Every structure is written in C-alpha cells, then in structure tokens.
Amino acid sequence: MLRRLYDWTMSLAARKSAEKWLAVIAFIESSVFLVPADVLFLPMALAKPEKAWRYALIATVASVLGGIAGWFLGYYAYETIARPVLEFYGKLEAFDALRASVDYQTVVLLLITSGLAHLPPIKIVTILSGVAHINIWLFIISAIVARGARFMLLAWLLQRYGEPIREFIEKRLGLLAALGAGVLILLYIAYRYIAH
C-alpha cells in the first residue's frame, strides 16, 4: 500500500495542478498523511528550478497550517479523530509511549526535530502538541522555523546542484537531518542533566 501511495504522490508532480497538490500533501502530511511532501516537492523543484523557492514557500505554509490542524485534533478531538488516525497507521503505541515519557520542553524540542527530520513523524508531534496543550503560538513559531528551514534548504540544494543532488537528498539527507536532530536531542539531554 505504501509503495502505491508513494507512486501516486510522485505522479502528481507532472500535473498542471501540481502546486495545489503540493499544498494539499504538505497540509495533510502534518496531521494525517503518511507520505512526506518532499516526495512531490523534489521532482517539482527539479523540473522547474526557477520555481524552487515558490514551491518551498507553498510547502512551508501548507505544512504549518496542517500542523495547526494536527494540534487542534490533539487538543479538541484526540479520542474521536486523532486516536483512530494513529491506530490506522500503526502509530498509536509509539504515540502513547511518547506521550507518557515527555514533558512540555521535550515536546517543543520534538517539534523542531520532527519538522526538520521527521524524527519522530510530524503528524505524531503535531497531535501530541495539542494533547500536551503546548501554547499554540509557540507551536506555530516552531513549525514555521523547522518546516521552513527544511523546505528552504531543499530548494537551495536543488537550485544550486540540480539533478545530481537528488540522489543524495533521497538517500542521505534524511540520515543527515536525523543525525542533526539527534545532536539537538543529546544537547538538550545534557542541558537537562547539568541543570538538575
């Protein structure tokens, strides 16, 4: 199923309505969808590098709006909507474990790491932020910074290096972003340990 979903998302890049689809995918990825917006963003930006920044802006705005929707799902509709979505994707156990083990500051850190590196998946953290009653304005600022940084970096790489960077992005950028997110988490843990 995941492969068909990925292929369908990739096919949207060739359509005239690709920008609208990019906004839709980026929006729903942040709250309920499994396939990241990068899958659509990358081929679009490679096909029209002069529009890479525009695509990055569309993806950022839609992703932040989708994150806000995820926050509202967690805050107001966890039992009726968010929980069944998490169950559908097999993420409920991971969500419950995360929910039981994090505090307010950790959720804010996870907002940044998930926005940059999908670590953990963004939809889990947006819903968790609502459940944990993270301040909505702090949530929005974190989402703008993290998602904006991700899409703007991708736009810059694709504009500067073009097709040769695509393989690197598809195979290694996730790993590098995850390593960066891991460093942020370790720094936070060290800070918490030293502070206490």
Rank of each mutant, 00 (worst) to 15 (best):
S142F: 04
Q105C: 08
Y55P: 06
R150V: 07
V131Q: 00
L98A: 11
Y104I: 00
L116Y: 04
D103H: 13
A62N: 02
A94D: 14
L111D: 03
I134E: 01
G148I: 01
S114R: 03
A52Y: 00
V131P: 04
A149R: 02
Y76T: 06
Y89A: 11
L92H: 00
R150M: 07
V61L: 06
Y55N: 05
L128A: 01
V145S: 12
A56V: 07
G90N: 13
L119V: 08
L116H: 07
L116E: 09
A94W: 08
L57C: 07
L73N: 02
L57V: 14
P121K: 06
F95L: 05
L98W: 05
S142I: 05
W71C: 06
I122C: 05
H118N: 13
V108W: 14
L138P: 04
L116F: 08
V107E: 05
W71G: 03
T60R: 06
I141R: 09
L92S: 14
Y89N: 11
E79D: 13
N135P: 02
D103C: 04
K91F: 15
N135D: 15
F139C: 08
W71R: 02
L138Y: 14
G90S: 07
G90Y: 14
H133K: 08
P121A: 08
V145K: 08
V125D: 04
A77M: 10
I58E: 01
R99W: 11
I122T: 13
F88W: 12
I127L: 06
D103Q: 00
A143F: 09
A82T: 15
L73K: 09
A132K: 06
I127V: 14
I134K: 00
F72V: 11
V64I: 01
G115N: 07
Y55R: 00
W71L: 00
K91I: 08
A97R: 11
G66W: 10
E93F: 09
W53R: 01
R147G: 00
A97S: 14
I81S: 01
L86I: 12
N135Y: 07
I68H: 02
A149T: 14
S101V: 04
L73G: 08
A56F: 00
D103F: 04
L98V: 02
L109I: 13
W53P: 11
S101T: 13
H133R: 07
Y76H: 13
G115D: 09
K91Y: 15
A69Y: 12
I122L: 12
A52N: 06
G66N: 05
Y89I: 13
V131S: 03
I124S: 03
A69F: 14
I134A: 02
A77D: 07
V102C: 13
W137S: 10
T80E: 10
H118K: 08
H133Q: 14
E87W: 00
G90K: 10
L92T: 04
A69I: 03
R54G: 07
T60C: 09
N135H: 12
L73T: 09
T113Y: 12
T80S: 13
L73P: 05
L111K: 01
L86V: 07
G74F: 06
V102E: 01
T126F: 07
L111R: 05
S114Q: 09
R54H: 14
I140T: 02
V61D: 01
I134G: 03
I144R: 12
R83L: 07
T113M: 10
I122P: 05
I122F: 15
A77K: 11
A97I: 15
A94R: 06
Y55C: 05
E87I: 11
